[in-house]
């Protein structure tokens, strides 16, 4: 039986993530945990997050989870979601804090002056709602998901990878930003698959069956 650990560092509710994974992975064990030993024992690891990145980094450190996250990201199928994706990068503008440095690059805020839609209207921040994810299809986690499928986003910051080779999807909102990254056993998304109806469930199912 496969085991999935969802890392809980005390920032926000992980119930939806857990329920969505249970929904697509009947028979698997899904653990919501803040215990590094449990993370270390799991076959697959999900790293979610919401709220402000400085708070997320602080709570992660306080629970002694940094090493467990880094070890999982270096070794097993690993899915970052929202702030969980952002925390994998070197540094965030939000609170000027360092991240975990798994990916080289910055987490940056949508700039007011860029927030103009194609029709000249002002785009709102947070970027909230269903937007198109252009992925080109060449990763197993996109299997069965149309290029340009809509997923649910809610965020004001996005990742800017230093190495374009890790970009697994892009989305347009005032500018074209990176909405998913991938490298070896790591896949990480800015949107919320657990809130993205059938497309999101398919992505989670693909993650559960992924053999990187």
């Amino acid at each position: 039986m496969t085991t999935v650990a969802i890392i809980d560092y005390g920032m926000g509710n992980l119930r939806s993530v857990a329920k969505a994974i249970e929904h697509v992975a009947p028979g698997h064990q899904v653990w919501v945990t803040s215990n590094p030993a449990v993370v270390a024992a799991a076959d697959r690891v999900v790293f979610p997050g919401q709220g402000a990145m400085p708070d997320c980094m602080r709570e992660l450190e306080l629970r002694g989870l940094r090493l467990a996250v880094l070890e999982a990201a270096a070794s097993r199928p690993f899915l970052g979601i929202c702030i969980g994706q952002q925390m994998l990068f070197d540094h965030s503008e939000e609170g000027d804090v360092p991240g975990l440095g798994v990916f080289a690059g910055e987490v940056v805020r949508f700039r007011d002056e860029q927030m103009i839609g194609p029709d000249g209207s002002r785009l709102k921040v947070p970027h909230m709602g269903w937007n198109e994810v252009r992925h080109g299809g060449d990763h197993p986690l996109w299997e069965g998901i149309s290029d340009g499928e809509r997923f649910y986003f809610v965020h004001s910051y996005y990742v800017a990878p230093a190495d374009p080779a890790v970009i697994a999807a892009e989305t347009d909102y005032g500018l074209r930003f990176t909405s998913a990254v991938a490298r070896a056993n790591i896949f990480a998304v800015q949107f919320h698959p657990e809130k993205s109806a059938q497309a999101g469930l398919r992505l989670l199912s693909n993650f559960i069956h992924w053999a990187p």
């Binding site: 119930r15 329920k19 969505a20 657990e194 993205s196």
Partner: peptide, 8 residues
Amino acid sequence: VADQVFIP
């Protein structure tokens, strides 16, 4: 509802 409906 949240356990069975996966939209916001």
